[in-house]
Amino acid sequence: MSQQTRTPADAIPQPLLDVRGIDTFYGAIQALRGVSLHVSRGEIVTLIGANGAGKTTLLGSIFGNPRASVGSVSFDGEDITTLATHRIAPRGIALVPEGRHIFPAMTVEENLVMGTIPVGEAHLDEDRAQMFELFPRLQERRNQRAGTLSGGEQQMLAIARALMSRPQLILLDEPSLGLAPLVVRRIFEVLREIASLGKTIFLVEQNANHALKLADRAYVLVNGEIRLQGSGRELLADPEVRKAYLGGH
């Protein structure tokens, strides 16, 4: 794949995730219109937008479900637009989906093991120990059915499961949705810790305040189109963003 030669012009690193002009449809309904964005290695990038703006569809399009009909998605220089969904995770991308989607009838431990599919179980003990350090509650409940966990614990489990695949890029879809303020704060602390481990993070959020404070860069998605982009700080100060997403104060 790498037709690049090492010249000084290549000093600008190629983005880890590069989404270029994608259109995605649900039947006849167009959910994304020419969306382009990129995430560079080591960055925390956030995408904010209202309900129905197409945030979840965008993450789905990275995993080919639903697939973008126009445009391209590249990861680490490789075009993954038409790759089968199950071939995406082994490339080094993990998703923490909206609504968590843990396996409710499996134990906490089994859920963690499910995360290791792309990398095999060679690092299982080491990585599981690390996850239990990051989320002590999961260790306490390791043999409990995941469906019996509280919402916050399930969210922690979904994040831990994603990390078990040792991803380069972790995508999170509204991890703060429906959680108590204290738990939300804890989730954002964890995201900071994960970033400090050298992971690249792409965070989709409605909770613009928290997300913009965390992010290096941010995009605003409105009706399936990227409306604004800039650093987290810039968008936090933008009057339009303040009015639409931060309650105007």
Partner: peptide, 8 residues
């Protein structure tokens, strides 16, 4: 759907 996303 989640199983496929995890690489199954």
């Amino acid at each position: 759907k989640m199983a496929a996303i995890l690489g199954i």
